[in-house]
């Protein structure tokens, strides 16, 4: 079951702030990566393994950050490894989660 969290105002966020840019900011902030600017992360750059060198605990921390940022709730069995390959795949993942959350919030009568 996917539950929508209480509404949260998306304050101080400009319209130009794309999903990609927000994900990059979450990566740097929630993973405490010092000395890396969000915009330095490429959309296609590998996040795990050889790329940014992230691991399974980073993935959990990242999900927590994304849940907060995008008001989504990710179930453990939805944490598909392929979703965490790059910022691009994460953006698709977030969009999918948001659509699913909206579908639950406005169920068919």
């Amino acid at each position: 079951m996917i539950m929508r969290r209480a509404e949260r105002p998306n304050n101080e966020m400009s319209k130009a702030d794309t999903v990609h840019a927000r994900i990059k900011r979450v990566i740097v902030e929630s993973l405490m990566i010092e000395g890396l600017a969000p915009e330095e992360i490429g959309d296609e750059q590998a996040l795990f393994g050889e790329g940014l060198g992230l691991d399974s605990v980073d993935a959990l921390e990242l999900v927590l950050g994304l849940e907060n940022e995008f008001d989504i709730k990710v179930k453990s069995d939805q944490m598909d490894k392929s979703a965490f390959a790059s910022v691009n795949t994460l953006a698709e993942f977030v969009e999918r989660q948001k659509r699913a959350a909206e579908a639950v919030a406005t169920p068919d009568e």
Partner: peptide
């Protein structure tokens, strides 16, 4: 508890 950080726990 939903907000608990895996990093901090580890």
């Amino acid at each position: 508890p939903e907000a608990a950080s895996p990093f901090l726990f580890m």
